[in-house]
């Protein structure tokens, strides 16, 4: 089975994001970059599926030369080869999904696994756009019943269950008030939620091997996709700060403040 996974380059989730004084963007200096954590979960799931069912994991990233770092990261985790769509400049979700559609049509995977959202834009859209553009089945927010401390997780059992005939995949989705299970005909688009798995660390031999794995370079022009943004960011700002709070010495003071000052109880 062939699985296409994504590796978006995003700011390290632990880094402090500050808006530029003129509101034109965020301050880039001093920031570290990583693979989008949700995409990393997608890479891990792809590797587990390939280990169980055989096949190939192809990782794709879109951006300037620097996204090769994220591709190498996924290759070091164990992905077999990489596709790099070389483009500098802003891309919105319509453009990203359009590019991924062309890559998927070229690669013809059985499944595309993406993060449910990237932690920079937080749009939570690309997987759904992609599924519609391809006319494929979609299962967003993939999770599993077992916890991340379960035996299944320790044994790296894939959470996505491919049917015996290899034509379907069962996905447990994290939704409001519970878990919903879908059965998707393959090929399908799956987006990952946090508790699908714990991604592995890249091993040293993995990192060495990744250096010689192939990265194919494509461009929006080669793929025939118009990437003119349809979403314009006019201005960015920092959220209004909360007014400074106080420390209270004991429960009695807390209850008094809650009752008489905040009128919350």
């Amino acid at each position: 089975m062939k699985i296409l996974v994504t590796a978006k380059r995003v700011e390290d989730p632990e880094s402090k994001i500050k808006v530029k004084p003129d509101g034109s963007g965020i301050v880039q200096e001093g920031l570290k970059y990583k693979i989008n954590p949700f995409d990393e979960i997608g890479v891990e799931e792809g590797l587990r599926l390939a280990a169980k069912h055989g096949g190939e994991v192809v990782v794709v990233s879109i951006g300037g030369k620097e996204v090769q770092e994220q591709l190498r990261h996924a290759l070091a985790m164990g992905a077999h080869r990489a596709v790099w769509v070389n483009h500098t400049g802003t891309l919105d979700q319509l453009a990203l999904a359009g590019l991924l559609q062309k890559v998927a049509e070229k690669e013809k995977p059985d499944m595309v696994i993406l993060g449910k959202q990237s932690i920079d834009d937080d749009q939570n859209q690309v997987g759904q756009y992609l599924a519609e553009f391809l006319g494929w089945s979609q299962a967003t927010f993939a999770s599993k019943v077992e916890s991340l401390e379960s035996e299944q997780e320790k044994n790296k059992v894939p959470a996505l269950q491919v049917g015996a005939d290899g034509k379907t995949v069962r996905v447990v989705r994290e939704v409001d008030n519970g878990l919903a299970t879908l059965e998707c005909a393959l090929p399908a688009v799956v987006t990952t939620d946090l508790r699908l798995n714990l991604p592995r660390y890249a091993s040293l031999p993995g990192i060495m091997k990744a250096k010689s794995k192939p990265i194919e370079e494509l461009t929006p022009e080669k793929l025939g996709v118009d990437v003119t943004p349809k979403i314009q960011v006019l201005k960015m700002s920092s959220p209004p700060p909360r007014k400074a709070g106080i420390k209270v010495p004991d429960v009695a003071t807390l209850v008094d403040k809650l009752r008489n000052e905040a009128k919350a109880v």
């Binding site: 700011e11 989730p13 402090k16 994001i17 808006v19 965020i26 932690i119 920079d120 834009d121 937080d122 979403i231 314009q232 960011v233 006019l234 201005k235 960015m236 700002s237 920092s238 959220p239």
Partner: peptide, 11 residues
């Protein structure tokens, strides 16, 4: 955006 660390005005 960025986990609510940034508010963006978009068109």
């Amino acid at each position: 955006m960025w986990a609510g660390n940034v508010f963006a005005e978009v068109k």
